[in-house]
Design a protein around this nucleic acid. Structure first.
Length: 773
DNA sequence: CAGTGAGCGAGCTTCCGCTTGACTT
């Protein structure tokens, strides 16, 4: 029996800390929150003053039981959950769930996992901060009330299983609004003038490119300017040199790691977190869910050593970064390598690439500024007052640039960061050519996952632990889709002055192509519109920031948590009731036109199962026909012609074995039906043109595949089979699946054995019920 | 995995934030 039990949130942390403390201490982890509001109902007793009904989370019962046993035997229980709102609540929940006498407990906190920090913490224990726990409770109850009252409203007014919440609904709004901005964007153009000049004051002539400070709004003006340049003389009017410096970016937080891994490595947000989790668990990096920029003194010392060894002492400049992120709670360090002298790690390519990024960023953050010299060369024209300007940049001392440079989401600007040839005031320049190119203004960019995380962090919406899950949620709910879009060709005008003549050309450029960008779906747009119409306060970009301010007041003991909730809930609940009664179901219905054959109206709208087209009015004597939109089609953009195509299915291809072979479009794409069996079409097959021959081929292939999957069948019962699955053999019985006990060989099972397994054991969960998890 | 779309009604869906394995056909 150990005298001291220390409980932390993460098992990897527990392992490390156990090494710092002596034999007298046993360190265990509780794996995050152990209690949560009951899921069966609202989980909040509104009439009794919003009393939360906390229960031990079902998946934590086992660990709670184990901790309870250990806590009962220990003399002192050290509650070492994170120092933030959620961590304080975890500590309070531990006391409750483990049923320990509070006098037997000590609350300790530390921001870095170093021996010194842990021992300091042990020497300075405190009690539970009830105000902080209340602030967490307010956060939790508010999110539950918003989520569990708004979502059912959507089920009634739009379609079942939809969801809404303080964080996800605002994230979808950002994407939906960006799409509107892009659609309404007015593209303007101007003519940009770039000159290629020759400097011939050295041994051999060198090129220098410069841009005119003025842009022209019409082709005529641009051409008139080129005419003026034809035969003009060009000379350097002025050279301005200015020293400048660049500083390294601070070490990574969750959000900046996700952004940089997306830009530099092309990782999705979820992938970044998966790889980072592996690196953390194997002890290579510090905790990966953090909003802190802080590095421990130990880490800064290691970085200093590493920089001195690799680059020399003049490259060292240690820095302490402070965060300015809204609502940051700073329970951990910034993300950094555990050992700064380890440049690589064992593991696959993605682990090494992410680790290298983390290593470079953390080390570079403690390196000297880069010293630059920025040069601006102004070139005069003998025939006009306009000036050309060439900009250059010279690195005098590379500093941190030796190691790492942060990338940006913006397009690189033109004419920057070039090294200019030696040149002096008064030099005359030869003109090789001058071009006037039509340049178009760009609409705001669509969000990548990582850009959305950046925006959410700016607005204070969501936390490091929820960025990746939130982005998955809004995609899983079909509010948002991540995809590539091909660009379109756009023509632009190009005038070139060369050898005394001006040539005018029309050229093409590809614009608007997108890779792995987030687009709102019809459902996402409709739900956002509905919520904006009726719950503008929740959808307000400042809503979270406002309530966070109130949570802070609760934490400081200046505000009573349930009066804050009451203040919010009364008007909110009234609005729910009002909307429930006062509004009709919304479907986003739009009349597209009429069917030329029948004269019936064609509508597009959101139905029970998603976007669809409808032929004929709903109140007619004849039932209207329906068809689901195909993948990639949207209510917004579908045309009448495309809608009519959708009604061409189902179609009968012919008859095989006395039964029609019918091709139709189902929930999961086009399929063939024959003898009550279903066969999916290949991606390359077009359901509108597929032949009976090809259909029969598809059916044969599928039957052959099924045959190969079958290990055994039984004459006693056609519904019972032993099949070969992805995870080994299993028993299929009337569409239910059963595991085969490990000690039995699948091939040798008799009919009786199988019957026994089927009646005695529970079937494994189907993918349908798993989805609801 | 599957073919729906009116309306009825049963029974289900749903939030955010803290943590990792368990599980899958």
């Amino acid at each position: 029996m150990t005298k001291n039990l220390v409980i932390v949130e993460s098992p990897a942390k527990a392992k490390t800390i156990e090494g710092f403390l002596g034999k007298e201490y046993q360190v265990k982890s509780c794996f995050g929150h152990i209690m949560d509001l009951s899921k069966k109902d609202l989980g909040v007793d509104i009439d009794q003053g919003f009393i939360p009904k906390y229960i031990i989370s079902p998946d934590k019962k086992k660990i709670v039981a184990e901790l309870k046993k250990l806590a009962g035997a220990a003399e002192t229980v050290w509650l070492a959950s994170d120092e933030d709102r959620e961590g304080e609540a975890i500590a309070a929940h531990l006391i409750e769930a483990l049923n320990i006498d509070e006098s037997k407990t000590r609350r300790i906190v530390f921001h870095e996992i170093t021996k010194h920090a842990i021992l300091e913490a042990i020497n300075h224990p405190r009690g539970i901060d009830r105000d902080l726990v209340n602030a967490q409770q307010a956060r939790r109850v508010l999110d539950r009330l918003v989520g569990f009252e708004l979502s059912p409203l959507l089920w009634k007014k739009i379609k079942p299983s939809l969801s809404a919440g303080r964080v996800q609904s605002v994230a979808v709004r950002l994407i939906a609004e960006r799409e509107v901005e892009i659609r309404n964007f007015q593209t303007l153009f101007s003519f940009r003038i770039v000159g290629d000049f020759i400097v011939s004051n050295g041994d051999k002539p060198v090129a220098i490119q410069a841009e005119l400070t003025k842009r022209f709004s019409t082709l005529e003006e641009a051409e008139a300017f080129l005419q003026k340049c034809n035969g003009a003389e060009f000379a350097v009017n002025e050279i301005e040199k200015k020293p400048a410096k660049k500083s390294p970016a601070p070490p990574f937080t969750t959000s900046t790691l996700q952004q940089e891994a997306s830009r530099k490595l092309g990782f999705s947000v979820a992938n970044t977190m998966r790889v980072a989790q592996d690196l953390y668990e194997s002890g290579k990096i510090t905790y990966m869910r953090t909003d802190s920029l802080n590095l421990s003194n130990l880490a800064i010392g290691m970085a200093k050593q590493e920089i001195t060894d690799s680059f020399g002492a003049e490259y060292v400049k240690t820095r302490k970064y402070t965060t300015k992120t809204k609502g940051a709670q700073e329970a951990h360090e910034a993300i950094r390598p555990t050992y700064m002298n380890a440049k690589t790690v064992d593991g696959d390519r993605s682990h090494n690439r992410l680790y290298e990024l983390i290593w470079k960023r953390a080390v570079a953050s403690q390196m000297a500024d880069a010293l630059l010299e920025k040069t601006t060369v102004t070139i005069g024209i003998s025939t006009t007052k306009e000036k050309f300007v060439a900009k250059g940049e010279l690195i005098k001392f590379d500093g941190f640039l030796k190691l790492y440079m942060e990338s940006t989401d913006e397009e690189p600007s033109n004419g920057e960061e070039r090294i200019l040839p030696p040149i002096k005031r008064g030099d005359s320049l030869g003109m090789n050519q001058i071009q006037a190119q039509q340049k178009f203004t760009q609409p705001p960019p669509r969000y990548t996952e990582a850009m959305l995380v950046k925006k959410m962090e700016e607005l204070g919406i969501g936390r490091p632990s929820t960025y990746a899950p939130t982005i998955s949620t809004i995609q899983r709910r079909d509010y948002v889709i991540k995809e590539d879009r091909p660009g379109i060709n756009r023509a632009f005008q190009l005038l070139t002055l060369h050898n005394g003549t001006i040539v005018s050309e029309e050229k093409g450029e590809k614009v608007g192509s997108e890779k792995q960008k987030l687009f709102p779906t019809d459902i996402g747009i409709l739900v956002t519109q509905f919520l904006m119409d009726h719950f503008m306060n929740i959808m307000d970009y400042n809503f979270t920031a406002t309530v966070e301010g109130e949570f802070d007041e609760i934490a400081e003991g200046k505000l009573v948590w349930n009066s804050m909730i009451k203040e919010f809930y009364s008007p909110f609940h009234n609005q729910i009731a009002k909307t429930l009664e006062g509004t009709k179901k919304v479907s986003g219905e739009k009349l597209l036109g009429t069917d030329p054959k029948t004269g019936l109206n064609i509508f597009v709208k959101i139905g029970r199962y998603g976007p669809m087209v409808q032929m004929g009015d709903a109140d007619m004597e004849n039932k209207p026909r329906f068809a689901a939109l195909k993948k990639g089609q949207s209510i917004e953009s579908i045309t009448l012609e495309e809608s009519l195509e959708l009604f061409k299915l189902p179609r009968t291809l012919g008859t095989i074995d006395n039964d029609d072979v019918v091709v139709a479009a189902g929930r999961f794409g086009p399929y063939i039906k024959h003898h009550a069996q279903f066969f999916s079409l290949a991606k390359t097959d077009d359901p509108l043109t597929i032949t009976l021959e090809r259909a029969s081929e598809i059916m044969l292939e599928k039957k052959k595949l099924d045959q190969e999957k079958t290990i055994r069948e039984f004459s006693e019962d056609a519904g019972l089979k032993i099949l070969r699955g992805k995870y080994g053999p299993y028993i299929s019985f009337n569409k239910l699946n059963f595991k085969i006990p490990k000690e039995k060989a699948a091939e040798e099972l008799t009919y009786e054995d199988c019957r026994k397994i089927v009646t005695d054991t529970k079937p494994t969960k189907s993918s349908k019920s798993r989805k609801s998890k």
